[in-house]
Amino acid sequence: MSFDPVYTARSNILIVGTWPSPKSREQGFFYGHPQNRFWPMLAALMHAPIPETIEQKTRLICDNDLALWDTIESCTITGASDASIRDVVPTDLAWLCRQAPIERIVCNGATAYRLCVQYHHLPGVQVLRLPSTSPANAAWSMERLLEQWGPALTRREEECGEE
């Protein structure tokens, strides 16, 4: 089961993962594993409280002109192992980019990035590979994640047309 995208008509940065983990599917929303650092990291970067409910998580994404989805609509996978992914049916990121002014896609981890560039060709949209927030990526501390993710989730002034 994949999830519908979270976005508004103002969303300009799309965050993508690969495919929902078993814990996420159980909870019915993105990044549901309690040890995943995605929501605490995003809250810290947006100077907001850590969201606990799906409604709070959705609000955090939407209030900051972000969008959230996965690169895969369906696949065969063993547990939560990205390395086991096969039989990929990609999501329609081009459709989402027509619904919102997406300028940048931020990929949560190497596999999300690989799948994004393999299946999604979106001229004019910058695609960035960032370290995974997964608990399996223990080599990356929260501090290092914040340092890498922060610049990717903010628009530079010249991109905003500000002086």
Score class of each variant (00 low, 15 high):
Ala67Pro: 10
Arg155Ile: 15
Arg59Gly: 08
Glu147Trp: 05
Thr76Ala: 12
Arg155Asn: 15
Ser141Tyr: 10
Asp4Thr: 00
Gly109Met: 10
Ile72Ala: 02
Asp4Ile: 00
Glu157Asn: 13
Ala139Gln: 13
Glu157Ala: 15
Trp95His: 11
Pro49Glu: 05
Arg59Met: 10
Leu115Asp: 11
Trp19Arg: 03
Arg156Phe: 10
Val127Glu: 06
Glu52Val: 13
Glu55Trp: 08
Thr91His: 10
Arg155Tyr: 10
Glu147Cys: 04
Leu146Ala: 12
Gly79Ala: 12
Asn108Met: 00
Met41Gln: 05
Asn36Ile: 01
Thr8Pro: 10
Leu14Met: 11
Pro51Glu: 14
Arg114Trp: 09
Cys62Asp: 14
Asp65Ala: 14
His47Phe: 10
Ser74Tyr: 03
Arg10Ser: 12
Arg59Asp: 13
Trp19Thr: 06
Ala43Asp: 04
Arg37Met: 09
Asp82Ser: 15
Thr58His: 12
Glu163Trp: 10
Cys75Arg: 09
Ala139Cys: 08
Pro22Met: 12
Met41Asp: 04
Ser11Val: 12
Thr154Gly: 11
Cys97Gly: 01
Tyr119Glu: 06
Leu42Ser: 02
Phe30Gly: 00
Asn137Val: 05
Cys62Gly: 09
Val117Ile: 15
Glu73Ala: 14
Ala9Arg: 09
Thr58Asp: 15
Trp149Glu: 12
Leu146Lys: 08
Gly79Gln: 06
Ser21Glu: 05
Gly32Ile: 02
Leu128Thr: 11
Ala110Trp: 08
Arg144Trp: 04
Thr78Met: 06
Glu73Lys: 11
Arg37Ala: 11
Thr58Lys: 15
Ser21Cys: 12
Ala9Asn: 04
Asp82Ile: 12
Cys75Ala: 14
Ala94Cys: 03
Leu68His: 15
Ala139Ser: 11
Leu146Cys: 13
Leu145His: 14
Arg114Leu: 14
Ser132Glu: 04
Ser24Tyr: 04
Asp82Cys: 13
Ile77Leu: 02
Thr71Pro: 02
Val88Asp: 05
Pro123Ala: 10
Thr71Gly: 01
Pro22Arg: 12
Arg156Gly: 08
His120Val: 05
Pro22Asp: 11
His33Arg: 03
Met46Trp: 03
Ser81Cys: 01
Pro51Val: 15
Arg59Asn: 09
Val106Phe: 00
Glu162Lys: 11
Thr76Arg: 14
Glu159Arg: 15
Ser21Leu: 03
Ser84Lys: 12
Ile15Trp: 02
